[in-house]
Write a protein that binds this DNA or RNA. Structure first.
Lengths: 205, 205
DNA sequence: TGTACATCAGTGAACGCGCGTTCACTGATGTAC
DNA sequence: TGTACATCAGTGAACGCGCGTTCACTGATGTAC
């Protein structure tokens, strides 16, 4: 329940929301401060009451994305229940679900070319979300014999990379690129094969 | 040996090269027709003697990228020699090598938001390069018992996705994102684990 | 070989546009008394 | 409750800018005779 503003009533968030819609529609670079302001029913100059400028608005959109993302991942991980393996798989699914459900956020986070270390709050939010996947990987890695255990940060990097690749190449409405499979199935199968390669799933299905 | 132009001497290619440099430097959307013209030592209007406009220039850059990419993949695949497995792994490495060596092309191809099906020549070039990875996957898939063999187009999609994800997340000079491992090692390890999951590599290293 | 002509790659000026940003302002809202 | 005042979110006009694109042109190059 944010306190109502003098005229608009929480313009700050309305601008972020408008920006997210535009980013989803036109990509992070097609996004325009002026248009976001217009869509929020406000003059471009009004934006400067709440943000330093165009980039700052994108940064805030990305930051909120990381918050939501972290929450979703945390929820999917569920403290490693019912098993490290299942929790890990759930985070993979959560990744894709997030990209699907919050395309504007996703684009602001991963496709806008923001320098993540420019804004400390953004950095913190990004680290928080990636930490969850790393924790899941670490818990999982304990089920592998230590002598043949690759570093756990490598798992999370692999899963992150495959998830991101699936999103970018097959889950996006890029015109002309037809997905051979539903992205969810594709990712789930890929992660399954990968975990089998780690010896975490019995070779026989 | 292109015939020399009247004044400039193969301005068309010079413009493509300038565009590639700019795309590499500033991203596909930071790229500007006017600046590309300037860097080629020519007036912006001259561009219209060779291209329909800004987008057409990007499309040509992407098309050339797909040609190079296809050649590289073809070379790496090497007709499936010495083995289907090794040839497949080589194409994975070639993917990353291409992204590293030709970042401008890579960005034009995969990050410019071009509608691939707008230009038939671009579509053809893109299909040619992706066909090679699919062929490699198909050859590999014959080494898996048919009853537990997933569709081969799924392999190539998985490898493609992981490769792309590694490039985007860990091989790019995105400021602030530190790569935990050399991208080459990361990808090679990931593909190795994946192929082990398919039963194509013995579980014991 | 020399001359007249045709071609057409690149010029330079101009255009309309929307952008991000600034600034002095205004007037609705909240507050003190 | 009513009045005077302070606050400050949003306005509207203006700016300089570089963009993509157009157009009539020019002058170097190639070609026919």
């Amino acid at each position: 329940m944010a306190k109502r503003g003098y005229h608009h009533g929480n313009l700050r968030q309305a601008l972020v929301d408008a920006a997210l819609d535009l980013i989803e529609e036109k990509g992070p670079t097609g996004f325009t401060l002026s248009e976001a302001a217009k869509n929020a029913g406000v003059t471009p100059a009004a934006v400067y009451r709440h943000f330093e400028g165009r980039e700052d608005l994108i940064v805030e959109a990305a930051r909120q994305g990381h918050e939501i993302f972290a929450e979703l991942m945390e929820y999917a991980y569920n403290g490693g229940k019912p098993s490290a393996l299942e929790a890990f798989e759930a985070t993979g699914r959560a990744y894709l679900a997030f990209a699907r459900k919050h395309p504007g956020h996703y684009m602001a986070m991963f496709e806008s070319g923001i320098s993540a270390n420019k804004n400390p709050e953004l950095t913190a939010a990004a680290q928080r979300s990636s930490a969850i996947l790393e924790r899941a990987a670490e818990a999982l890695s304990e089920h592998i014999p230590p002598d043949k255990r690759p570093p756990s940060s490598m798992f999370s990097a692999h899963i992150w990379a495959m998830s991101h690749g699936v999103v970018e190449l097959f889950a996006r409405g890029t015109p002309g690129s037809r997905s051979p499979f539903p992205p969810e199935d594709l990712l789930e199968a890929g992660i399954g094969i990968y975990l089998r390669g780690l010896g975490l799933i019995p070779p026989d299905k």
